[in-house]
């Protein structure tokens, strides 16, 4: 696998694990403490217990893959084909994250109705979710174009 594939795999694994663990934690905390403590857990922070979404921080570990997987030694490290793949992957990532914003905002509006109110914390969490979606979609697009397991033709 080339460097781009390895970085994409690490981002995909870390974001997926953080998402799955967060959902499991939210479900467990919901059964124990109910909403909204299951999500935010601010009341629980005083006794050292984070809310379920705290586990999303694991997804940030994927960023270290840029340091772990060093650049290739060859003369040509990045050609036009790699550039095209990256452009398509970033475009797909931004489209997916924008769609995420729209779905979250409109779903909330339909659930709560026009006279409802929400905590202002929903807004930065939406941005965080959008960023996670961006990383996920970008990684999947990179792997779909280079190949999921083959050598990806090092540039």
């Amino acid at each position: 696998m080339n460097r781009a594939q390895k970085i994409a795999w690490s981002c995909l694994i870390t974001v997926s694990i953080s998402l799955i663990l967060s959902i499991i934690a939210v479900v467990i905390f919901y059964l124990i403490f109910g909403m909204p403590k299951a999500l935010w857990g601010f009341a629980l922070m005083s006794i050292g217990l984070p809310g379920g979404f705290g586990l999303m921080g694991i997804g940030g570990l994927g960023v270290f893959s840029q340091l772990i997987f060093k650049k290739g030694q060859g003369k040509v490290r990045f050609d036009e084909r790699d550039q095209l793949f990256y452009m398509r992957a970033w475009f797909l990532g931004y489209c997916a994250s924008y769609l995420f914003f729209v779905i979250v905002c409109m779903t909330t509006w339909f659930i709560y109705g026009p006279k409802g109110t929400i905590s202002v914390n929903v807004l930065p969490l939406t941005v965080m979710g959008g960023f996670m979606t961006l990383m996920l979609a970008h990684s999947v697009a990179i792997l779909a174009q280079y190949g999921w397991t083959n050598k990806g033709e090092k540039s």
């Binding site: 905002c105 509006w109 109110t117 929400i118």
Partner: peptide, 14 residues
């Protein structure tokens, strides 16, 4: 972080 906003702002953002 302790404030709340009207949900009508969400579709207005878009």
């Amino acid at each position: 972080p302790k404030a709340s906003i009207s949900v009508i702002w969400l579709p207005n953002i878009f």
